[in-house]
Design a protein around this nucleic acid. Structure first.
Lengths: 183, 183
DNA sequence: GTCTATAGATTGATAGAC
DNA sequence: GTCTATCAATCTATAGAC
């Protein structure tokens, strides 16, 4: 690592924005703060990305690796989904939290809706064809959201400290119940 | 209704703050906006309530009428809880949404935690004594939160338009499953 | 209790030299 | 591409007259 070398300003700004938005959220991160962290000029932030809002939308794009989800038999999808969500939590939770907390801003609310749709609803819906599938998929997505909400938005310390395998087992089996009802 | 009569300024400010915080959230509601809606002076807002933050905390105190929850047999608590949450949604959802969206602010995050604890976890925990009760109560609270999250934060239009009785039946029976497991 | 006036800081964004 | 300088608006909060 040589000082003055390498990373283009635009990338340094992107990286700094990603860090700050995840740590403090949209409202509490100023363009000046981002510029300072990137060791760049505040004017360049706007110059490169148009506005603070566009910069937020460009950097806050959470994605789950849902490849493993599609590969597993339907009877195991419940536990598997919870497992994947918790496993990717480090990459996923901060960004997701920023979207939830920023969702007072209409454009951010739209992004949250899209992410919820694409990440939670769509993969489930694909596995639940036929009558009643959509309601079950959306209630299942609500259930997933509830776990993230409890862990990352509320910050339930008991759950955060709980044995992960037990949470996967318990909550995953609930999820399984709505995907493939016993009765 | 006679102009110039009646309602004290302090109450007009409180009412205006409640309206604006619920409609726009914490970050997007300014002291000036609140004063304007209350037809009062901006300085009086601070004078009466100390700060914008204290005004928010004083006005945003959601409460569920959990009387019906205590009266019902444990075997019916799942559906009943979902029923109550959805029935009180008009009073409850806006305030809860404001807390979630404002939870980037540490003091608001604390309030959200308290409300989650008192409103969701405590009533369930009271009904689930004995070993493993706390984990079940907290996972159940997560499940409840997930429904509110899907409906009010994400705004899942399919669920919002769905038959309420069916949602109560389906989601309530999931909740029941974690309160009183079949196996 | 209520108001005017304003402090004092911070905000997002732009113009224009280099 | 990068910078200085700054605009113009907004913000919370306070001081002090009435």
């Amino acid at each position: 690592m040589v000082r003055g070398e390498g990373v283009p300003t635009r990338e340094r700004i992107r990286s700094a924005a990603s860090t700050l938005f995840r740590e403090r959220g949209y409202a509490r991160s100023s363009v000046r703060d981002i510029a300072a962290l990137a060791e760049a000029d505040a004017a360049l932030v706007i110059r490169h990305f148009g506005s603070k809002e566009l910069l937020f939308l460009e950097t806050m794009q959470p994605s789950l690796d849902d490849e493993p989800l599609l590969a597993v038999p339907l009877e195991q999808l419940g536990r598997r989904f919870v497992e994947v969500v918790l496993a990717d939590a480090d990459e996923f939770s901060d960004v997701y939290l920023a979207l939830v907390r920023g969702s007072g801003e209409p454009s951010i609310a739209g992004r949250l809706r899209t992410v919820h749709e694409e990440t939670f609803v769509r993969p489930l819906l694909a596995r639940l064809p036929g009558q009643g599938g959509e309601l079950r998929a959306r209630l299942a997505a609500a259930l997933i959201g509830g776990l993230l909400y409890s862990l990352w938005v509320v910050g339930d310390e008991y759950l955060l400290a709980a044995d992960r395998h037990e949470v996967v087992e318990r909550y995953g089996s609930l999820l399984q119940d709505i995907l493939t009802p016993a009765a």
